[in-house]
């Protein structure tokens, strides 16, 4: 498989370990990629609050670049996925609007025909690579490791634009991967709720309650770690966990929040450094030890 790779701002900024671990996993799987270094930010829904059309123009430009290369787009971020899917959905069902957007791209010699697909790595691993191929690359089973899935918002809603009708298995994609690596699923009610990141700078008290509730509840239910496909959720649930847990629950941050390629990388036997696990704010030491203590597959 080959993808037009769109890592997103956070993987190239505040969560560099996501970028590194994704590249390591893709290399192990022989996934080819061309990074879309000329593409702009998706707008994350925030830019769209001010000017929806501006957002659509930026995203359609990215789709046109991938279309020209004849490649599907792979993203690492739920927010990128959600915002791109919504933009793609809007222009694909409204040819007149698409033509209007294309007039802005003409100066650059680009025109989008509407054929690009956008897939988060989480979906690509399951739908394109396939569970059997993926499993063959694992060198250990993460037996006994309790993982709480945390989807957040934009990779599950709006379900129509995200293609859930044609791909209903996307609703449980994190659980599928946790089971595949041999871990136990720690199910908890907040897994598709907001992580609090979008209001971090607007209503921090509410944001901290969300972080403390999600990480605290998952921990209480026995989770060793939380897995998220969204680096923005990661920034809040990991970076602000010490503050949130202290303020809201009066306890300590004790739940590592890992990225999807880090989960896969652990099953592939990759090291802490290769996966950037030492870069997390909440210590992943215990988790790494737990994984390393497990026997290698025969």
């Amino acid at each position: 498989m080959k993808y037009a790779f769109y890592p997103g701002c956070v993987a190239r900024g505040g969560a560099p370990e996501l970028y590194d671990s994704a590249l390591a996993v893709m290399e192990r799987l022989g996934i080819e990629h061309v990074e879309l270094t000329k593409a702009a930010c998706t707008g994350a829904g925030v830019l769209q609050e001010k000017n929806l059309k501006m957002g659509d123009v930026l995203n359609v430009r990215t789709f046109a670049m991938a279309e020209e290369m004849g490649l599907p787009i792979m993203v690492l971020c739920s927010t990128c996925q959600g915002v791109m899917s919504q933009a793609n959905h809007r222009v694909q069902r409204d040819p007149e609007y698409l033509a209007e957007i294309n007039t802005h791209l003409a100066a650059e010699g680009l025109e989008y025909k509407g054929t690009t697909t956008v897939k988060h790595m989480l979906w690509a691993l399951i739908e394109d690579i396939g569970l059997d191929t993926l499993k063959e690359t694992f060198t250990r089973e993460l037996t006994g490791m309790n993982m709480a899935p945390f989807y957040g918002c934009y990779i599950v809603r709006p379900s129509e634009a995200l293609g859930f009708l044609d791909n209903p298995e996307r609703e449980t994609s994190l659980e599928t991967l946790i089971e595949l690596v041999g871990g136990n699923i720690t199910d908890f009610p907040g897994k598709t709720a907001c992580c609090g990141f979008p209001i971090l700078f607007i209503n921090q008290a509410n944001s901290m309650k969300m972080v403390a509730n999600h990480t605290g509840t998952a921990k209480d239910l026995g989770a060793d770690a939380m897995v998220t496909p969204c680096p923005l959720c990661h920034l809040n649930l990991d970076g602000y966990q010490p503050k949130a847990r202290r303020r809201v629950r009066g306890d300590k941050a004790d739940l590592p929040v890992i990225h999807v390629p880090q989960l896969i990388g652990l099953a592939m036997g990759m090291s802490e450094k290769e996966l950037g696990l030492q870069k997390h704010i909440v210590s992943t030491k215990k988790l790494v030890k737990q994984a390393e203590a497990l026997p290698a597959k025969a």
């Binding site: 702009a40 123009v57 802005h104 970076g239």
Partner: peptide, 29 residues
Amino acid sequence: AAMRKGKLPSPMPHKSEDHKKVRELYDSV
């Protein structure tokens, strides 16, 4: 805390390779 873990975003903004083109799109829209 982010700095200690070596993940503080650079205070100098990264620019996308084609940021001038993006600027032109803003002007256009």
